[in-house]
Amino acid sequence: MSADEEPLIEIDGLKKHYSTDEGLLDRILGDAETVKAVDGVDLEIAEGETLGLVGESGCGKSSLGRTMLGLEEPTEGSVYYDGEDLTELSSAELRDYRKDLQFVFQNPFASLNPRLTVSDIVGEALDVHGLAAGEERAERVEELLETVGLQASHASRYPHEFSGGQRQRIGIARALAVDPEFIVCDEPVSALDVSVQAQILNLLEDLQEDFGLSYLFIAHDLSVVEHIADRIAVMYLGEIVEVGKTEEIFSPPYHPYTRSLLSAIPEPDPLWEGDRIILEGTVPSPINPPSGCKFHTRCPIAHDECSEWDEHPDLEEVSSTHGIGCPFHEEIQDEVGSSADSTGAESTAD
């Protein structure tokens, strides 16, 4: 769906490096270190599409989401929206684009100011952009609350009076207030109970249909995005290692990292006997990322040369919509318990 259309948003070589230099002393001594949170990412998001962005914590996926919306200053690269390079805009010019580009946060307990009422939280966007005032503002806030499945009477309450799922709905109402085109959802359900997760995911899905939204949906787990994403990008240490349509990600050929993420999805069938590739260790520090392919320290099929390359391998097109950043991906062909195995299981279960 995205290949032939002009993308809504295009990320081009985006980099976000953090410097650890905190004060004058560090600067004088020059012992600052650089954290390469996002290290050259290219992505496209089409209108009405949901792109899932998956990776372990610390891989830079949140930084990518924040940097692309200009919440953090990018180190390098561009983000094109509507033909405009957002990274070139001044903060005043960017303010106008905030109406189109919104954000839903991970932690519903930290993303709502505890001192403001729901009406002030949701209405802030209306105030900032002068979209509605007085009576109209109150009506709009109530309408938004009802859109996200809350009651209009909740407007005068404070965030602490709501459960996690309800708070996340408030956060979504706030993002919707400006009538956006595109929303970055930064792990919007990972802080919620499983039973509530599905409700929020369904809400996001419904809103997408009703308002024609596009999402960048960030998650640390493939199982969350498999239902909601049209396409998925897998991120590791600041690099996109695989990108493709959801079904392409969930079936071979795989990137070795995707393969291990897939086998980490809990399998509800206790009789299922598949290979489980368990990732060893934690994500290496992005301050001193491994040389060559950044995944080589944990890669089950790592070759000697993988660590010797000058840089991380580029994405290799295996189909027009599917790219894999590993030249040896063909060595991983076996199925993961996902689609193929379970279709097998289905026939036996019936």
Binding site: A198, N202, H227, S339, A345, A349, D350
Partner: peptide, 22 residues
């Protein structure tokens, strides 16, 4: 219950939670 979950793997759509009553 799991079969319905697994077969929907790569389809877009509302999440149908089976196995317990929402």
């Amino acid at each position: 219950s799991h079969e319905s979950q697994r077969t929907t793997t790569t389809e877009r759509g509302r999440i149908r939670v089976t196995g317990f009553d929402t």
